[in-house]
């Protein structure tokens, strides 16, 4: 399942489509645009408009529509402090809500997968991996990844100390001047909330070296986390991944 905000990087979509083809898998797409068209959510306005928050509604609708028991994701505890408290097997009620105060204790390798009809789980099998673990594993197993994780030249602009990719989805302020720059992405979300890093790393080995010597955290470029101290916890309670 892919929740498509409609504001994705083109490279992410190409990668997705190739992956589906290669595995002969069935792809379910939940479209945020459709949720907007159906009046279920309202598009944010202004320079900081993002569909990041809207996608939760689309995600939950899609889970409900297809009666999905368990959505498996790549979230990790070292990414963000609300995620640090996330269970490996995380129960969601019929409204898709996460209740961090009332989570099932997880001990040893014993996961409680019991639920009522209409409820679902979010499972995070690589909860305990770090960013470095992920890169080392990709290198070891030769796992394909979207090209924008590697250094490339693209049109960007600066806002609040973050380098954004310029695109038709972004409304620029008058003083924001697009320029060409050699960048890569360390984490990939929607184009409206993902910042790039200035980087020459064009191979996995170079990325690993960069990660090892990096002085900022991985999600330091994610503006969606910075809306408030508890931005992630608040979104997660509503059902965000």
């Amino acid at each position: 399942m892919h929740v498509d905000t409609g504001h994705n990087f083109e490279e992410t979509m190409t990668f997705r489509d190739n992956l589906v083809k290669e595995h002969g898998a069935k792809l379910i797409v939940g479209s945020v645009q459709e949720s907007i068209d159906q009046g279920k959510v309202q598009e944010e306005t202004g320079f900081y408009a993002s569909r990041n928050k809207l996608q939760t509604v689309t995600l939950l609708d899609t889970i409900e529509k297809h009666k999905i028991d368990c959505a498996i994701g790549g979230g990790r505890r070292d990414e963000e402090k609300a995620r640090a408290k996330e269970r490996v097997f995380s129960h969601r009620d019929e409204f898709g809500q996460w209740d961090p105060k009332n989570q099932r204790p997880e001990l040893w390798n014993l996961y409680n997968g019991k639920k009522r009809p209409g409820e679902h789980f979010r499972a995070f099998p690589i909860s305990n991996w770090t960013e470095m673990d992920v890169w080392q594993y990709i290198l070891l197993e030769n796992i394909p990844i979207p090209s924008i994780y590697f250094s490339h030249v693209r049109e960007v602009f600066d806002r609040d100390g973050v380098i954004y990719a310029n695109s038709s989805f972004m409304r620029l302020k008058p003083e924001e001047k697009p320029r060409q720059m050699r960048v890569r992405f360390r984490t990939i979300g929607d184009m409206s909330c993902t910042g790039a890093v200035d980087s020459p790393a064009s191979t996995l080995e170079e990325i690993i070296e960069e990660v090892a010597s990096s002085r900022v955290t991985e999600r330091g470029t994610r503006m969606d986390d910075k809306r408030s101290e508890a931005a992630m916890e608040d979104r997660k309670k509503e059902g965000y991944f």
């Binding site: 505890r77 070292d78 402090k81 609300a82 640090a84 408290k85 961090p100 105060k101 989570q103 305990n128 770090t130 470095m132 101290e229 508890a230 916890e233």
Partner: peptide
């Protein structure tokens, strides 16, 4: 202080 949930939190370093 901020009313955020208190739970086991995991931290990672190497």
């Amino acid at each position: 202080e901020q009313g955020i949930t208190i739970d086991v939190a995991y931290r990672y370093f190497a």
